[in-house]
């Protein structure tokens, strides 16, 4: 694992270590199987058209999982994620597959976050973050917040 983050290392306004992600049609199939979310909106062109979203879209829950990944990587094994919430504000579209393994060019997403607050509550040293997923164009289609407990060097 990466080195452990401590409460004392964090400053309000500081950044959460960003995470780069892509989504392909194959990944959406894999996510559907692993999660049980078989909504045809994520793999059926005509169905997506009939709902007015144009073509199959990336699962909101997959983008949410990227945000969890962002936070758990950053807080490390001694940190604990206490709360996370996010809203899906816009559609994101997966890259199509060119070969079994390689996708065509397409969007890339960046999971990012900023520390908005740090405080001690009882025994716990807590940090609050604003988090989001941003596409190549800088659009934040998924936005949310997270609360995490971090270990303290003082203990």
């Amino acid at each position: 694992m990466a080195k452990q983050l401590y409460y004392e290392d964090v400053e309000v306004g500081g950044e959460v270590t960003a995470l780069k992600k892509i989504a392909t049609t194959r990944m959406l199939v894999q996510y559907a199987g692993a999660s049980g979310d078989f909504n045809p909106l994520h793999y059926e062109e005509d169905f997506a058209k009939s709902l007015g979203v144009g073509k199959p879209i990336v699962h909101g829950l997959l983008k949410r999982a990227w945000l969890v990944n962002l936070m758990t990587d950053w807080i490390g094994e001694k940190g604990g994620l206490k709360k996370l919430s996010c809203r899906y504000r816009g559609m994101d579209y997966p890259r199509k597959m060119k070969t079994f393994d390689d996708p065509h060019d397409g969007d890339t997403w960046y999971c990012k976050g900023k520390v908005t607050k740090k405080f001690v509550l009882g025994e716990e040293s807590l940090v609050e973050c604003e988090i989001w997923v941003e596409n190549d164009k800088g659009e934040k289609n998924t936005t949310g917040s997270a609360l995490a407990a971090l270990p303290s060097k003082a203990k």
């Binding site: 996370l84 919430s85 996010c86």
Partner: peptide, 9 residues
């Protein structure tokens, strides 16, 4: 459509 989620872990 999925609108969003809130978790208390």
């Amino acid at each position: 459509l999925d609108g969003g989620v809130e978790y208390d872990f």
